[in-house]
Design a protein around this nucleic acid. Structure first.
Length: 478
RNA sequence: CGGGGUGUAGCGCAGUCGGCCAGCGCGCCGCGUUUGGGACGCGGAGGUCGGCGGUUCAAGUCCGCCCACCCCGACCA
């Protein structure tokens, strides 16, 4: 199954990425163009992402529920910007049970409309607020061009939908979720994202304000890795989500929505992967430690395997796999698990049995540098510390890479040069949709976000020269 | 939808000027020897050569049309 050589990352990034996904057995192409089969290893990864997010959502008072896959077409049409944004990419069902439907159904591209419909029934009083619901679901968007994990016709995600009594509360929620996404990205996935606000032209169809976390991939392109939207009263008005306040006055709710998808798996691959294959952050890796027994003779086998069993039972708190296949050599197994990004490999052979030791090899540092010999005693603590080190190292490396590739050009010609070299530009920017278009035409770069963290004061807009206090991040994007 | 490319065994590919029986590597199955960085020997299984049509005594190879996929654009809450 494993091929001997991978296309190097620097040679052909797309090819490299596809090979990583396919050979690590994360996912496959499906019979229908643009659809993806998520294989068990990829799904295990998704489950770990899900757990990490769910913990954070629940800690902030959110609960999970499930809403229908089918949405009446008329629901979508109730919010003008929303229907305009999504129409081109809808899958529509016109026949059900063998006969033409009176009203076509769309396969959900996102669930604001149907959830808004339900919220209007559920919410009567200020005492019903806030409503903080999340759903784990699959959605369909008929994209022209697809890419495994990054943009598939069908994808899996979580979408949160909340309703609040005040604009302030809704904005707080939107920001709180953005912070959760940022925290997840940094501390679980070791992906150093930049949180920020979307420009008017890039915001969600139907939102008042959209926020994003933008990640920098290994080729310097930006990837929108999660979004949080303040919907204002747009959907509340479209779906009559109203409540009576303390003064017995009818008020429209303020709603939010936010999502993070299987695309994030793509972000992890492209942030950490190298020429040997996947490199997974320990916190999210389906297999954190692989143990490889090594022996030649039959009498060695017994001793080695009992040491392996002992070590494995010590490591009960970790996700451990023992590769005891006899039909392939240890060298083959090393490569096999490196391809799959397993953070830590333990080798146990006759020499280790004799010395009561274990050979320990890190995925993030290949070769002799990343290999050490440690005592079997206290192995759980050693492994714990090493996984923490790897986690921290991945984040530090990715951060360094990101910071090295963000520049602050002085003028527009410098801007162009940086973008051409696949860097990001952080600049003063007078918000203007027209100028965004002009920049895109000239450089292919888009306004990724107005970062939440920005320098004090103001400066001259890189494009128009006007004085502005807005700081914008531009990059080529996926 | 435009530009480029590729379709031959599960995967990766070779197949010259049209010519006998369609090949190679990896993988797979069997037996044996192996095991600290992608093991080896021997023996096997596996094919509508993307599809349809045409030219020809003869087509994987030449011609026409169609289809699928990949890459680059356009598009992308």
């Amino acid at each position: 199954m494993d091929e001997k050589k991978l296309t190097p990352r620097s040679e052909n990034y797309s090819e490299w990425y596809n090979q990583l996904v396919l050979r690590a057995e994360l996912a496959d192409y499906a019979p229908v163009r643009g659809c993806m089969v998520v294989r068990p290893y990829g799904w295990a990864m998704w489950e770990n992402i899900r757990d990490a997010l769910d913990r954070r959502f629940k800690a902030t008072g959110h609960v999970n529920a499930a809403f229908p896959l089918f949405i009446p077409m008329s629901f979508l049409e109730k919010e003008k910007a929303h229907v305009e944004g999504f129409s081109p990419e809808l899958a529509v069902v016109t026949i059900g049970g063998g006969s033409e439907l009176e009203e076509p159904l769309i396969v959900r591209p996102t669930s604001e409309t149907i959830i808004g419909h339900m919220y209007s029934k559920w919410i009567q009083s200020y005492r019903d607020l806030p409503v903080l619901i999340n759903q784990w679901a699959n959605v369909v968007r008929w994209e022209m061009r697809t890419r495994l994990f990054l943009r598939t016709l069908e994808f899996y995600w979580q979408e949160g939908h909340t309703a609040h009594a005040t604009a302030e509360e809704a904005e707080q929620e939107t920001i709180q979720i953005l912070n959760i996404y940022t925290d997840f990205a940094l501390n679980e996935a070791a992906v150093p994202v930049v949180p920020g606000r979307k420009s008017e032209s890039e915001k969600f169809a139907g939102a008042v304000r959209s926020y994003t976390i933008e990640g920098m991939m290994g080729d310097g392109k930006a990837l929108q890795a999660g979004t949080s939207h303040n919907l204002g009263q747009n959907f509340a008005k479209a779906f009559d989500i109203q409540y009576l306040d303390e003064n017995n006055t009818l008020q429209y709710c303020w709603t939010t929505s936010w999502g993070l998808s299987t695309r994030f798996i793509g972000a992890i691959i492209m942030t950490h992967g190298d020429d040997q294959g996947l490199v997974l952050p320990p916190r999210l890796a389906p297999v954190q430690v692989v143990i490889i027994p090594i022996f030649r003779k039959e009498e060695e086998k017994g001793q080695v395997m009992s040491a392996v069993d002992r070590v494995k039972s010590e490591l009960g708190d970790f996700r451990v796999e023992v590769d005891d296949r006899t039909e392939v050599t240890p060298g083959f197994k090393f490569n096999h698990w490196e391809m799959r990004g397993v953070p830590l490999r333990l080798e146990i052979g006759p020499k280790d049995v004799a010395k009561n030791s274990v050979a320990l090899a890190r995925r993030d540092i290949l070769g002799r540098e990343g290999k050490s010999f440690v005592p079997q005693d206290g192995i759980a603590q050693t492994v714990h510390e090493m996984l923490e080190k790897i986690q921290a190292n991945l984040l530090a490396k990715a951060k360094t890479f990101r910071d090295e590739h963000i520049s602050e050009p002085k003028d527009f010609s410098e801007f162009k040069e940086i973008i051409n070299n696949n860097g990001w530009c952080s600049v003063w920017w007078k918000p203007s949709a027209e100028n965004e278009v002009l920049v895109k035409d000239e450089t292919k770069a888009t306004l990724r976000c107005f970062p939440l963290e920005k320098p004090e004061g103001s400066g001259q807009c890189i494009f128009s020269g006007e004085e502005t206090s807005e700081r914008a991040l531009f990059a080529k994007a996926y």
